[in-house]
């Protein structure tokens, strides 16, 4: 009697949940993307309904220049990239700075733990509450700032014509929510670096910036790549904050300049009877999936450990050489 089966039983729940809630929707999204756009039951559709196969029509709709949703998709992709870059760069710089300070033994700051907790806190609040909070400050009719700047114009901030204020607001919220998280991650990375390296650097007379650029930064690369990757994936799928700030109950985002790809997908999916577009939403999801995958692979490729690969190659070569020699030597035992 093998005990192995208990192992399988214990891991079963994960796989069941995974297959139902992750794998099935994933596969179904691919299926949906090859089907027509939605129309409620009972109405005679002029276009193919969500039950008909339409092949690549939805992809053409998005990717071809003549496609009806081409521009909208590109615009939303552009917004996504702008907002992500605008939030990632300041965020990682800030987090890195704070992480170095908090881990530096020479910085004697009282209440380090307190600050760490406070900085991590925004990440604990749900995105919906955060958005509600910022909407109260910047949003339409009763927004505090709009009331101060121009009380008669409710749609100044986050209104349909507001390009940069809205984007910067979203970037700021993302930074504020996530810098604590990133900071904790980087701190654990820094603490993982061998203490003696820092000591050696100190003894050799390296100053702080030299220590940072020659020791901390290179050794932190792995964790930075991880941060970059998770942040990129999260950033490309950004939905909650832009939608909560500007979305309406038809699934549309009123301010087009913070309409991310995920918002675009939701808008197409939701719609009312005459503008639900399941096929396009599915196709856009699949395209986003591939964009994310390709970018992820790219990051891995660029950040791969060249030294290790080189070493590996050399070791293999040396082994081959040794084997060849051994054969050539003609010894056979």
């Amino acid at each position: 009697m093998s005990y192995a089966k208990y192992g399988y039983i214990f891991i079963l729940p994960f796989f069941v949940i995974y297959f139902i809630f992750m794998l099935y929707p994933l596969v179904d999204t691919f299926i949906v993307s090859f089907k027509g756009n939605g129309l409620g039951p009972g109405v005679i559709a002029r276009h193919e309904s969500q039950r008909d196969w339409v092949g690549l029509a939805s992809y053409k709709n998005i990717l071809y220049k003549s496609g009806a949703n081409h521009e909208q998709f590109l615009d939303s992709l552009k917004n996504t990239v702008i907002i992500w870059v605008g939030n990632f760069l300041p965020q990682i710089s800030l987090s890195l700075l704070l992480a170095v300070w908090f881990t530096d033994m020479r910085v004697k700051m009282p209440g380090k733990g307190f600050f760490k907790v406070v900085m991590y806190l925004p990440n604990i609040i749900t995105a919906a509450s955060v958005a509600a909070l910022f909407y109260t400050l910047f949003g339409g009719e009763y927004g505090v700032l709009n009331t101060i700047i121009d009380p008669k114009n409710a749609s100044l901030w986050l209104g349909p014509a507001d390009v940069w204020r809205a984007r910067i607001l979203v970037m700021f919220i993302q930074i504020w929510m996530w810098f604590g998280n990133t900071m904790i991650m980087l701190m654990s990375g820094i603490q993982g670096i061998n203490e003696s390296l820092f000591e050696a650097a100190e003894i050799d007379g390296a100053n702080s910036s030299q220590t940072f650029w020659r020791i901390t930064f290179p050794l932190l690369k792995t964790i930075m790549v991880y941060t970059l990757l998770t942040s990129m994936i999260g950033g490309l799928q950004m939905f909650d904050i832009p939608f909560m700030l500007s979305g309406n109950n038809n699934g549309h985002v009123n301010n087009e300049y913070i309409k991310t790809v995920a918002c675009f997908i939701y808008e197409k999916f939701k719609g009312t009877e005459n503008d639900m577009m399941y096929g396009v939403a599915g196709a856009a999801s699949v395209i986003l999936f591939f964009i994310t995958s390709i970018l992820g692979a790219l990051v891995f490729y660029v950040q791969r450990d060249k030294d290790a690969i080189e070493k590996n190659r050399k070791r293999k070569e040396a082994m081959k050489e040794a084997k060849r020699r051994a054969k050539g030597g003609g010894f056979s035992i």
Partner: peptide
């Protein structure tokens, strides 16, 4: 090392794939 990397890549893709979770299916309307 390679195995680790490919595992990490797969994990990444799995996270990325969660983008799809929100995209419901059409079976409910039918």
């Amino acid at each position: 090392n390679k195995l680790k990397k490919s595992l990490a890549l797969i994990a990444t893709l799995a996270i990325a794939s969660s983008a799809f979770v929100a995209c419901g299916d059409d079976s409910s309307s039918s």
